[in-house]
Design a protein around this nucleic acid. Structure first.
Lengths: 150, 150
DNA sequence: CTGTCTGTTTGATAACACCCAAACACTTAA
DNA sequence: TTAAGTGTTTGGGTGTTATCAAACAGACAG
């Protein structure tokens, strides 16, 4: 049965299903709920659980593999990859700066005071950083807004 | 001639041209270089300056208008819109949190230490917030990576 | 070997994104 | 009215995205 994952797919959001899968797995990896070596649901298992075509899950898994997040093994399953070596500090900063700039522009447009922006970023970082609990989170599959399941 | 804008289009980036236009105008608005009432380049003028089809600029301007950033006036030109009334604090936070969470996940994946994330976000916010100079910035059009201009 | 897990690949479809060309309509000044 | 500026609209070509169905191939327990 592999690791249980609590994935929520929202059909109404407009965000592609494969991308929702990617984002959420990334989130669990970032938060430490999923750790290197952990087995994640097989393509068919996940596709079946959320009532989508296996190819859609393949798409998500393939992209994640290309990003070095997971590793697929033929006949075995899919696993969280060993943590990739950190980029050079300059490359880190280039990538980070792009996202930060975008956040800054959006926050300004929303007229959010800077201190609040910092606070929220701190909170979101904090939600990920702590060493994760081991066997908490009753992790399940689920689907939202699905007129998918006939 | 309207307001001069320093817009750089990078064909290699993969980011759609119309979106690059949008992002940069948003950035100037957020930074105060462009203020409510300011006239921005006409569709044709901008299209000509950066060697793209006018319809591409129309796309960018229309999206910006839908977001309340600018205002198009038939026969007159395009202008920076009056600043939209701020959202409620809760709505602000919902929107902001979404972006912040994404930043946090990315930063974690990049293995950037939290303090550095905060620092960079501070810097990017700071690059926008100060009362903007009035007539600085030699603002021009330009295109990068253009095999476009024959 | 056989069955049943696993991932892999191919081909098709429908929808959308992106960019373009050209004709249309409003505004203003001469 | 005319001219030259402005934004508007329509239609099409091209490529990508998103999803699916079905057949293919490795791993392993029995």
């Amino acid at each position: 049965m592999t690791t249980q994952l609590h994935l929520q797919i929202d059909d109404r959001s407009g965000v592609p299903v494969y991308r929702q899968i990617m984002d959420q797995i990334k989130y669990y990896v970032a938060g430490g709920t999923l750790r290197p070596g952990d087995q994640i649901p097989s393509i068919r298992e996940l596709a079946n659980a959320m009532a989508v075509n296996p190819t859609t899950v393949v798409k998500a898994y393939s992209e994640l593999e290309a990003e070095g997040i997971i590793e697929k093994r033929h006949g075995k399953g899919a696993f969280i990859a060993a943590q990739a070596p950190a980029l050079s500090v300059v490359d880190q900063e280039i990538a980070l700066r792009r996202s930060a700039k975008q956040l800054a522009v959006e926050a300004t447009q929303l007229q959010v005071p800077s201190p609040k922006v910092i606070t929220v970023v701190r909170e979101e970082l904090g939600a990920l950083s702590p060493e994760r609990n081991d066997e908490d989170d009753p992790i399940k599959f689920s689907v939202l807004g699905g007129d998918r399941a006939s």
